[in-house]
């Protein structure tokens, strides 16, 4: 059992986001980079599933040369192989990315390392397209389970579950399959020092994209207008309690 898990190098949007002059992307010079929480969950699941099945998890990214950092992070927490499709991610739309992942799956199968399970995040933290995993499933002709937080494999069947609108839902799907993951089902492990050392030594498979991208249908990115602040700060810490209760009285929400 050699699951493939797909990750993306994304800007850390908790810090201030600056756009490039052409409005086509986020200016990386001012940004920190990370992997989304959903993908960290997917990596953890892939590593556990590989360990249970006596195989190894392969991590894949499509990105520029810097994205090797995200591959090394996944290797440091237990993935044993990595594939880097070297391309400018901003020029790739979700259908393009799905096609490139499918090509890797097919090539690895042909080379004797089939991935019967492909795990992805439910949605990328930057482009938020919500569709790469589903498009990948159509490329491969496989079933897809979307937005689950726990995944396990036994006897060629993947059992996956997560929160649905009407309660906690479970799917059981025969392999091969695509599964997209939401954070929260598993606690991603921290890399250990030996893990990091090992990750440095793994030879990463580098490849070119197989087709010209159609591209995202992006016209341009814009920043939402800043909202002027009119906040009245009542105080700091516990000392502000009387001022808070004054406010509650003034608003008439304390009456009883």
């Amino acid at each position: 059992m050699n699951p493939l898990v797909c990750v993306k190098r994304v800007v850390d949007s908790s810090s201030e986001v600056v756009l490039t002059d052409d409005g086509q992307g986020v200016d990386g010079r001012f940004a920190g980079f990370t992997t989304s929480a959903h993908e960290e969950g997917a990596v953890e699941l892939a590593v556990r599933i590989a360990a249970d099945g006596g195989g190894g998890a392969t991590v894949l990214t499509l990105g520029d040369t810097d994205a090797v950092e995200q591959l090394r992070s996944a290797l440091a927490v237990g993935c044993s192989a990595a594939t880097h499709v070297l391309a400018d991610p901003q020029a790739y739309g979700p259908a393009d990315v799905a096609r490139e992942i499918a090509a890797v799956v097919r090539d690895h199968a042909a080379a004797g390392t089939p991935h019967d399970l492909v795990l992805l995040g439910n949605d990328a933290a930057d482009t938020g397209d919500f569709q790469v995993g589903i498009r990948l499933a159509y490329e491969l002709g496989w079933p897809v389970v979307n937005g689950v937080s726990t995944v396990s494999v036994a006897d060629g069947v993947v059992t996956a579950s997560g929160a649905g609108p009407d309660g906690h839902e479970t799917y059981r799907v025969p392999l091969p399959a695509v599964v997209t993951v939401l954070e929260g089902g598993v606690e991603p492990r921290y890399p250990t020092v030996p893990g990091r050392m090992k990750a440095k030594k793994v030879l990463i498979e580098e490849r070119e994209p197989v087709t010209e991208p159609v591209g995202p249908s992006r016209v341009r990115l814009v920043l939402p207008p800043p909202s002027p602040s009119t906040v009245e700060v009542l105080g700091e810490g516990a000392a502000a309690a009387p001022a808070v209760v004054d406010l509650l009285e003034r608003l008439g929400v304390l009456a009883r």
Partner: peptide, 13 residues
Amino acid sequence: RQVVGGAVLEEMR
């Protein structure tokens, strides 16, 4: 539409 966790808006055709 919203992208980058809502920190950025994308005009899309």
